[in-house]
């Protein structure tokens, strides 16, 4: 027997041993039948229940959207207030005139 054959046997032996061990131990499990039925009903019922539940990523986007929207709304309100106050002459009174210099 050639040396390479010995090497191959050395490789195959531990692999077949591991295969047997895994085949014996890793047995398929069956999901809870109630869970399977419940999910099937939700999946095959009207489209409004077909939406994927929000994920963590979705929640981050949602929070970012709310924060950005709030900041934008606040900025617009502040600008509106400043504009109104400016129109009312709070910052530059229209009736205020510099005395004439003689």
């Amino acid at each position: 027997m050639r040396e390479t054959d010995h090497r191959n046997e050395d490789l195959i032996e531990p692999i077949s041993g591991m295969e047997n061990r895994l085949q014996m131990r890793l047995t398929p499990v069956r999901p809870d039948p109630e869970f399977v039925d419940r999910l099937r009903k939700r999946l095959t019922s009207p489209p409004d229940t077909m939406l994927e539940p929000p994920t963590g990523f979705f929640n981050i986007f949602l929070v970012l959207g709310i924060v950005s929207g709030s900041v934008l709304a606040l900025t617009l309100v502040l600008r509106l207030i400043i504009l109104i106050l400016d129109e009312l002459g709070v910052f530059h009174p229209k009736d205020h005139q510099e005395p004439l210099a003689f």
Binding site: F35, L39, M50, L51, P53, T55
Partner: peptide
Amino acid sequence: EDLTSRVFYRAS
């Protein structure tokens, strides 16, 4: 169960 649900929601 939770992740299996998500797999099929996403697939659908």
